[in-house]
Structure formats: C-alpha cells, structure tokens
Design a protein around this nucleic acid. Structure first.
Length: 270
DNA sequence: AAAACTACCTGAGTGC
DNA sequence: TGCACTCAGGTAGTTT
C-alpha cells in the first residue's frame, strides 16, 4: 500500500514520461474517488506539465492552468502505458500525453483522489497543516521532542500523525520503532530526547532504504512500470507476527493500536 | 488542543 | 463450490 516510499518510487518512475509533455486528453472513467473528480479537470487539455513533485503522500503535477493533485489512498497506483492498451477494471482516470501514451490511475478501493488546485498548493487545506518531510532538514530530534511535549498518545500514533511528520504509515512506523528500540505503546510525551534522536534516524533510514528498493509490495502495490517493490524482504517486524525477531530471536508480537495492526519485538523494544 | 472514532471501498482470506 | 463474514489500509471529518 502506498506510503511515502511507494509514492516517491511512483514519482521517480513517471517524471521522465510526464515533464514537458502536452496533455492531449483528460479521461475520467469513474469520477467517484474519495472526492468527486472536478469537472474543470478538463481545462488541463492542451497544456503542458511543467513540473512534478511530492508533498507527503500527495503527488503534484504543475501546469500553467493549475496544479493537479493526486493521492493514491490505500490501493492506488499510476502507470505510464500506450494509449491503445486495454483498460483494466478500476482504471479510473488518465491523462493522455502527446497523444501516444497515458498516465493511468488504477485504484480498486477508490480511497485516492484527483483534484485541480487553482491556488498556491501550500495554502490548500489538504496541504496547509502538514508537518515536515521526514527526509528533509526540518525533521530533527529537537523538533520531534518538542512536539511530543504533553502528548499522551502512543508514540506510534504520534509519528503517524501527518501534522507531526508526513509519510510515515503503518508499515514504516512499526519498522522505525523497532530500529529505534521503542515500544509502539509508549506515550509520546514520555519518550526521551535520546530516543527521539534514535527515532528520527530510524525513520530516515527505513524510508530511504525502502525508496532504494522501490518500495514495499505486500499485496497490491506495483511501481509505474508494473514491477513490485522489494522492501518486503527487508521488513523486520511488520507482517511477521509469531516469527523470530531477526535480531534476538524472540517471537514478534502483534497488538492493535488505534485500530491498526502493530508488530514489535517484546525483547528489543522497551 | 488532543484524542477517539467513523466513513469511505474492494479483494483476499477464513470458516462453515 | 459457494456464501457470509472479517480484515487491511490513509486520512478527512466529526464527536467527545
């Protein structure tokens, strides 16, 4: 499922195919995504994609008529394919590029979205209140420690809060806490500065390593070229309930935190 | 302000 | 084999 590494992998995959290309058609097969795809999306027909970037798990394609914002939700993926390629079930949206190929959005669960922004993306309600990028300079031990003051929520839910830091979903939250040696259930406000330092380093390390391997394919994520990501083999605790910890051999435990499956090593994580 | 909970949706997996 | 059921996941929005 698309977390930050999967979105980054997708971005890197599509960039060479979309930058500078002319949008020759906008095809909406099913507008009922998380929010209805707006009718004015058609105004993009005829203009060029000037830039493509990522903010958290949002993908942004910039044109001179607005910014196309996309989110892959939990089951979305983008592919660049020839226009003549047959449509699959759950292919909901496409931009035709230079009349020969298409950037197609496939999203069985339809939790993703496609919107057109006319204002500065940074001021849009979906992006306005987002925390710093985990791989950027603003995400530091001091920052995390300060934000955690007075927070009673479990540290796992705290680092999954996009207002604190973007892009840390369920899989990478579990993995990062394992690497940092911190129990997911610990109250965020009780995590020491030194532990915050380890946690920031762990989040950066896990995300960067996953990006290097093209993301994690658990069930349905595929890269823009249709290949799976290979980070699954690097997972240390996620989806490994009852199996031995790769570090100490103790059995990995699974609990539910905030209605999400949470795996950890009861021996390595304090 | 923060925490807890709901809604959205489908495919995969389980148990009968 | 088929049906009924549960579960997974991201995050905006609502309620406590």
């Amino acid at each position: 499922m698309p977390e930050l590494p999967e979105v980054e992998t997708t971005l890197r995959g599509i960039v060479p195919h979309v930058i500078g290309r002319k949008i020759t058609a906008v095809i909406v097969r099913n507008a009922n995504l998380r929010w209805k795809v707006p009718a004015d999306i058609q105004t993009l027909k005829g203009c060029r994609i000037a830039a493509a970037r990522r903010r958290g798990k949002y993908l942004l394609l910039e044109t001179d008529r607005g910014t196309l914002l996309m989110h892959l939700g939990m089951s979305g993926s983008l592919r660049v394919i020839e226009s003549a390629a047959p449509w699959r079930a759950h292919d909901h949206f496409a931009l035709e590029l230079d009349g020969v190929r298409q950037l197609r959005l496939h999203d069985p669960r339809r939790f993703g979205c496609v919107l057109l922004l006319h204002e500065d993306p940074a001021t849009h309600p979906l992006l306005r209140d987002l925390g710093p990028e985990p791989l950027g300079d603003e995400f530091t031990a001091d920052y995390l420690f300060q934000r955690a003051r007075g927070r009673a929520a479990p540290v796992k839910q705290f680092i999954m809060d996009s207002k604190i830091v973007v892009g840390v979903g369920n899989i990478y939250a579990c993995e990062s806490l394992f690497l940092a040696g911190i129990r997911p259930t610990r109250k965020a406000g009780k995590v020491s500065r030194a532990e915050c330092s380890r946690l920031v380093a762990a989040i950066r390390r896990v995300l960067a390593a996953s990006i290097k391997q093209g993301g994690t394919t658990l069930r349905d994520f595929l890269r823009e070229d249709g290949e799976p990501g290979y980070f699954k083999q690097s997972l240390r605790v996620y989806d490994r309930e009852g199996q031995p910890c790769k570090k100490c051999g103790a059995l990995v435990k699974r609990i539910v935190l905030g209605q999400r499956g949470t795996c950890f090593c009861p021996a390595c994580q304090k």
